[in-house]
Design a protein around this nucleic acid. Sequence first.
DNA 1: ATCCGGCTTGGGAAATTTGCCCGAGCTGCA
DNA 2: TGCAGCTCGGGCAAATTTCCCAAGCCGGAT
Lengths: 216, 216
Amino acid sequence: MSDVAATGVSVLLVDDHPIVRQGYRRLLESQGDLHVVAEADNAADAYGAFKAHDPDVVVLDISMPGASGLEAIRNIRARSPRARILVFTMHNEAVLVKAAFSAGASGFVTKSSEPSVVVNAIRSVARGERAMSDDIAHILAEDSLSTGSVLDQLGEREIEILRQFAGGATTEEIAAHLNLSVKTVQNYHYLIKTKTGARTDAQLVRLAATCGLTKI
Amino acid sequence: MSDVAATGVSVLLVDDHPIVRQGYRRLLESQGDLHVVAEADNAADAYGAFKAHDPDVVVLDISMPGASGLEAIRNIRARSPRARILVFTMHNEAVLVKAAFSAGASGFVTKSSEPSVVVNAIRSVARGERAMSDDIAHILAEDSLSTGSVLDQLGEREIEILRQFAGGATTEEIAAHLNLSVKTVQNYHYLIKTKTGARTDAQLVRLAATCGLTKI
DNA sequence: ATCCGGCTTGGGAAATTTGCCCGAGCTGCA
DNA sequence: TGCAGCTCGGGCAAATTTCCCAAGCCGGAT
């Protein structure tokens, strides 16, 4: 990464869909200056791949099931603060975007962006700049003006648990996914309900859906 | 499409993510026998593109926002019954898969499938065969198929209770609305879950939503 | 006519979850 | 240093869920 202009930008792809990875790889390689040096299909493997290949930019999807992609961002940044991470996902919730940036991401681009936006975002973060797609900027802008979504009352953990719960996971499954005790998940469940004012699990699911936390 | 073997397979890509379309395009073109002749980024444009280019296979993501991808399938098949449609999406719920097939899809492949699975599925549906990825076959098998819509298994009362429940009503409220004992509503709740195979209240809500029983 | 099967309605009892309260560790911030 | 907030879990009574069962009703089959 000492001379990006001369050597191009090396990229680590992290996404749980092989097809999508393959698509990225072809897209990036066709640019000439972008080179995919490694891939990972889950957040847990991301750091290992990062350490092994020392890419200029990590492109990762934080909407992977199970472990949080935010965790992966923190993991990488904690050990390699100069790492550049571009989040590339279909989610566009303001809370998620803010969480990603505060976790250490350098950029956030939605999958509905034009390919040119993505490749330019990769080049931007490789230069140490911040990058985000127009829709994300829009969402953050509106969010900064708005009264605040219901989700703003929730912490990161609470949001993750709400997402999995609304997605149909049982308490035990969530506990297993996040490596928590069932009791803790139950407590979060209850906390989320009281915080959001939902009196019913069904109301919670609807809430998550209307906030875009889960798609139905 | 008169001679697939000689001319290759022409494909129409329908997906709301430009990047993903670009990825597919590169993947398919690299196969030699598959040619992307058109793209569309929403369900509404899909039929126009189909009519204009008469592709052998339509590869489409039914998880697009706004209009239903199922609608697009029905649209295309209604006017061109010999159309071959391969659904390619990240969703893997049995109800959705069955809905897609009953809408006229010829194949259903999840985005977590290997690239080779996708290209082979395209070739299969081009030959007029059915195709689905292993995970989808598994899900359908477990679903033990049988009954058409999930709602067909439910009686009138069960549907009414499911609707109110998914709408956010508590057990007591439902009992009061319908002049039943709380116990009866509880039993219905349980019965509905076992009948539909939902293991979670959240899954029940999603089910009701996907069946159009409640809007979110 | 009779019987079968499914829907509707609820009781009962064990298993599980919920509702709240609590404490502890940790982090960031003043 | 101390406060505040998030995360994580124990405890325990109250509530709900999970199953199993029974009975009435009704339409269709025999």
